[in-house]
């Protein structure tokens, strides 16, 4: 009995440790300068280039901001900080091959304060998507995209 309790304890500690390591890994994936990020100018080049694979661009930020201005061709999913938004993201990517090139973006807040991109990134990571980038928006979508003159459209 004692050995069973000891075994369960070890398994639980290992499980917790692995989960926290995965969380830490995901957070470090999104540290400025990480290769899992893409800068606005690089995304614009990719989207405007006649050649090359085009990403599926998904907005995981607040809807009211998306309605005012968003990246042409991007799809609104829902806020990544919200369980409903994560569920919608899960449903949207379910039929896609795991190698699909996906770019997530929000732009609600300065990078370190954004509550949306990390949960959305973690969800795709957990679902096995291996070609996911997050658009690095240092301050907000207005300052780092719209007012820099990059293409936008309004509405749904």
């Amino acid at each position: 009995m004692k050995s069973l309790v000891r075994f369960c304890f070890v398994v639980a500690v290992l499980g917790l440790s692995t989960a926290s390591q995965m969380q830490a890994q995901s957070a470090s994936d999104l540290a400025p300068g990480s290769t899992h990020l893409i800068n606005p100018e690089d995304l614009v080049k990719i989207l405007q280039s006649p050649k090359g694979e085009k990403p599926l661009v998904l907005n995981v930020g607040p809807h009211l901001l998306y309605m005012q201005a968003h990246i042409p061709g991007s799809e609104y999913i829902g806020a990544g900080s919200d369980s409903q938004g994560i569920e919608l993201l899960r449903r949207r990517v379910k039929p896609l091959p795991h190698k699909t090139f996906i770019v997530l973006y929000c732009g609600c807040c300065p990078w370190s304060h954004c509550p949306n991109v990390l949960p959305a990134y973690n969800e795709l990571h957990k679902a096995g998507f291996s070609n996911v980038k997050v658009l690095y928006i240092a301050d907000n979508f207005g300052a780092d995209w719209v007012y820099k003159g990059y293409p936008t459209i309004k509405g749904q």
Binding site: L64, L65, C109
Partner: peptide, 16 residues
């Protein structure tokens, strides 16, 4: 709660 129309009337609210 704000609306898209109100935000637009005030010059766009894309940064807070």
């Amino acid at each position: 709660l704000g609306t898209e129309k109100l935000a637009e009337a005030y010059g766009g609210v894309l940064e807070l």
